[in-house]
Design a protein around this nucleic acid. Structure first.
Length: 446
RNA sequence: GGUCCCAUCGUCUAGUGGCCUAGGACACAGCCCUUUCAAGGCUGCGGCGCGGGUUCGAACCCCGCUGGGACCGCCA
């Protein structure tokens, strides 16, 4: 008991862009593992590329993680005993250890740079938590198109450490127990192992994650459309949905469960159940998952999801109380894959204006007389409930021997300006007698 | 070109030698429900890449082939 090494994992993005869906996936699995094991999740900023790193991107990445609900225990903003957590602030650490290697004749200087000498015959194989044993030929570090073993740059001419070196120093000094990262790093691992050996440090456990591919089976990139987690937020996907979707990309709980909460994912997550095959990002599946989460939301939370999109449409939300708006959304049932769609589909509850803009019918006098009779009697029902309204409507069409559909559709258009909506008598009930009358009057139907 | 990894329905996956005439989910199609569209219910379509072994028995183990992916920067 308590003899196992403390679980410490890290997500180490470089601040050269927004939080990408692939980065989110990696961050998520690290977070899941830390939370599942009761360990620590560290955020480290790898800003050694002076050209491309910016403070703004660092903040964007952090807020993207917060949006996804991935909170970290140590990081540049919250600190921690293993700090600092920005590589640009750890330069002395990289230099000290590199100079030690120079003194031990394991590395040499070349101008301002420090370069590690790669000797032949090293065993570069390792055990990966998800991939198992990875056998690497000792000459696996050969230079492209050459037979020469390629030495590893530790410190660049600008004084900054290279990725492969800094990651080793940091993971060791930050006492990282599991290095969980994308499969694209699998071929970097042997180099890093060489450095661990040279430095005399114990290896962390390595766990590589399958890549996320686009529909064309190529590594997901901008060409595939939305890739930053913010784009998904702006399209009306909920953080819990993106979280859920990312979690089942390359991992499954083993049973048939696919829709789950953060807490359930933490409970169920196992690194050993991560698959080895790259998976294709399927927007249809994301839509489905989002819709499921949207349906499960309590009315008030759903309202908060939809509110910004109603706002975006310029609708006068303030003229209704929240409970009424939330109920309107409940009436929408499973309609809409995203909060944005749901907002667009339900605008007529908030305001009559979009309805007027959409629906501009022209009735003949004959049609009008007929409809007027129908609607006048409908408006006169004693209790304004959907069942009473429907009963009245059915009685009226039965007497005339006409189709319910024709009248229900006219009512639907007049109330919503759309050809699809929830049950139209329910909509009328929710809008209320006065608002229904106002809308019908606008079209001259009463 | 070199190194490494991977291979079950279109997609995400379950499956670790017999329970598999391969299960679930998305998507797709049809039906039911119905004032519309969703939702929901039911049904259907669809897969172990190929070839050799091993075994009484292979989706599961081994080999080869084919296919796909990743990496080979003083980028991370």
């Amino acid at each position: 008991m308590g003899t196992e090494r403390e679980i410490r994992v890290r997500f180490a993005p470089s601040p050269t862009g927004a939080l990408h869906i692939g980065g989110g996936h990696t961050a998520l699995f690290n977070w899941l593992w830390a939370r599942h094991k009761g360990g620590r999740f560290v955020l480290r900023i790898e800003d050694t590329d002076r050209e491309r790193s910016t403070q703004a991107y660092e903040e964007t990445i952090m807020s993207g993680m917060r949006w996804l609900g991935l909170d970290w225990d140590e990081g540049p903003d919250v600190g921690g005993v293993y700090g600092p957590y920005r590589q640009s602030e750890r330069l002395n650490l990289y230099r000290e250890n590199a100079e030690r290697l120079v003194r031990e004749d394991k590395a040499y200087r070349e101008g301002e740079a420090i370069i590690f000498r790669v000797l032949p015959g090293e065993d570069l194989s390792f055990d990966d938590v998800v991939y198992g044993r990875i056998e690497v030929a000792s000459d696996g570090l050969r230079e492209k198109g050459s037979d020469e073993l390629k030495d590893i740059v530790l410190i660049k001419s600008d004084g900054m450490p290279t990725y492969n070196y800094a990651v080793v120093v940091d993971d060791h000094l930050m006492n990282i127990s599991h290095v969980i990262r994308g499969e694209d790093h699998i071929s970097n691992t042997p180099k890093q192992i060489l450095l661990y050996h040279a430095l005399g440090w114990e290896l962390p456990a390595f766990a590589h994650l399958p890549m996320i591919l686009g529909k064309d089976k190529k590594k997901l990139s901008k060409r595939h459309g939305a890739t930053s987690v913010y784009e998904f937020r702006d399209m009306g996907y909920m953080p819990d949905s993106v979280f859920n979707f990312l979690a089942i990309l390359g991992w499954s709980p083993g049973d048939d469960r696919e829709i789950f909460s953060r807490a359930e994912a933490v409970e169920l997550f196992e690194l050993s159940r991560v698959v080895r095959k790259p998976s294709v990002f399927d927007p249809d599946k994301l839509n489905f998952i989002n819709q499921e989460h949207l349906k499960r939301l309590d009315p008030m939370t759903r309202l908060e999801m939809v509110r910004p999109f109603w706002q975006e449409l310029g609708l006068p939300i303030a003229s209704h109380d929240d409970a009424w708006l939330a109920d309107a959304l409940t009436l929408m049932g499973g309609r809409g894959k995203t909060a944005k769609e749901l907002a667009g589909f339900s605008d007529y509850f908030v305001s009559f204006e979009p309805v007027k803009a959409r629906y501009t019918p022209e009735f003949s006098e004959e049609e009008k007389a007929d409809l007027k009779d129908f609607f006048t009697k409908l408006l006169a029902v004693p209790d304004w409930t959907d069942s009473a309204l429907e009963a009245q409507a059915r009685e009226w069409v039965a007497q005339r021997g006409v189709k319910m559909k024709d009248y229900a559709m006219t009512l639907r258009f007049a109330l919503t300006g759309m050809k699809v909506s929830p049950g139209i008598f329910e909509v009328a009930q929710h809008l209320g007698r006065d608002e229904t009358r106002r809308r019908l009057a606008h079209y001259g139907l009463i």
